[in-house]
Design a protein around this nucleic acid. Sequence first.
DNA 1: ATCTGTCTATGATCTTCATCATATTCGGAC
DNA 2: GTCCGAATATGATGAAGATCATAGACAGAT
Lengths: 228, 228
Amino acid sequence: MDRRDILQALPFFAGLSERDWEKVIDLFSERQYKKDDYIFLEGEAPEALYVIRTGKVKVLRHSTDGKDVVLRVCGPGNLLGTVAVFDGGGYPGTAQVIEDCSVLAISRNDCLTLVNRYPVFALAVIADLGTRLRSSAEQIRSLAVERVEQRIARVLLKLAESAGSDAPEGRVIEMPLTRQDVADMTGTTVETAIRVMSKFRRQELIKTRRGRVVLVDIPTLQEIAEMR
Amino acid sequence: MDRRDILQALPFFAGLSERDWEKVIDLFSERQYKKDDYIFLEGEAPEALYVIRTGKVKVLRHSTDGKDVVLRVCGPGNLLGTVAVFDGGGYPGTAQVIEDCSVLAISRNDCLTLVNRYPVFALAVIADLGTRLRSSAEQIRSLAVERVEQRIARVLLKLAESAGSDAPEGRVIEMPLTRQDVADMTGTTVETAIRVMSKFRRQELIKTRRGRVVLVDIPTLQEIAEMR
DNA sequence: ATCTGTCTATGATCTTCATCATATTCGGAC
DNA sequence: GTCCGAATATGATGAAGATCATAGACAGAT
């Protein structure tokens, strides 16, 4: 499987004409990262834009007091570093690998050139940013008005939808997730995340096995997420 | 002052060549809104993209239990409805006028055409979305890890910076803000917003007169905002 | 000027969750 | 297997802030 097959399978590159491919393809280079590696750090000057081919990455920010906040979890097809590459400021968050991955990188300069030459890329970038703004808005609302149980139920459901697969026992979230990760995604502490998820497990709403979470009773989880 | 002068003064239209103006200018129509008017509602199909000429608008989401969350506050030069116009989904939030305003509207179709024809507009849209994603990330972090006092101090400082003017008594936030608005911007309740701002007033960090807030002691407010 | 509704104010109480403290379990290294 | 660090578990306690209740201040309408 060469870079071309990889790129063509990604939504980001849909709509590019056959002959334009030749010019585009060589601008991307493949890189591999291991679990826990950093792809870039918050505040760094944007060197490149990344397209995830396989694996999972979380984008997080740390606060002065050591508490981390996970802004998003990305998988195959997602872009990393878009904001910084286009406005030239530092990366707004740190990108850390949660499951070994392979990414395609394009230098900031090449990326800007590409977008100027092929309007279709500009539209793809707009689509990406738009999707993220929608989910940011939802995350803001959730943090602002919902209680911890609701937020955790919501995050589990969202992960199951975007990165889950069906198994006999339920819907499996296909990534290794610690309670700390869940806490950082929902603005709470490890202890509370543990308590809530233990409660979910006792209620037979979820199962957990070696870092993986399985949603057993999705309707009830949805009720909890929508509660009140 | 005709539409042309208005448009040219806005950052969104910088970089457009002289003769392209003729084709662009007629696509925009001016509309006036009064305080508390809705420009569009959450979930509505995107009819148009709006550029604020004068006045202030808040974008908010309501939750099922009646609690509102203010996602952003926009002023002159800001775009409204960008996400929905480009992805075709419903508006992600409700746009409500907080200070009488004049906006320039371009229909969704014309907007899409424009962006396809003039790449500079696509870049302006990308810039707008990027800025908003940065501030969303900051808002998420703030809601996730900071205490109410910090969040309120931070919001006041941000408003003073983006929409403030200097007066002898301090920096004035140039918009009518209720405690409810502040509460909706910081994910808390009216009562708590009132308590915190009363405390700030007693500490002579701020003054309030007829809905306007004046920041008297910015350094101390910054300390509070950065506090752990 | 007086009414009226909205906004601000403040106290009392109750929940939720953070914090602190300690086990216990698990998975990998050796 | 045994050791070890990380992740999970669970209790006790306290603090931040929500909720409920009530009252006063203020701006605009008549």
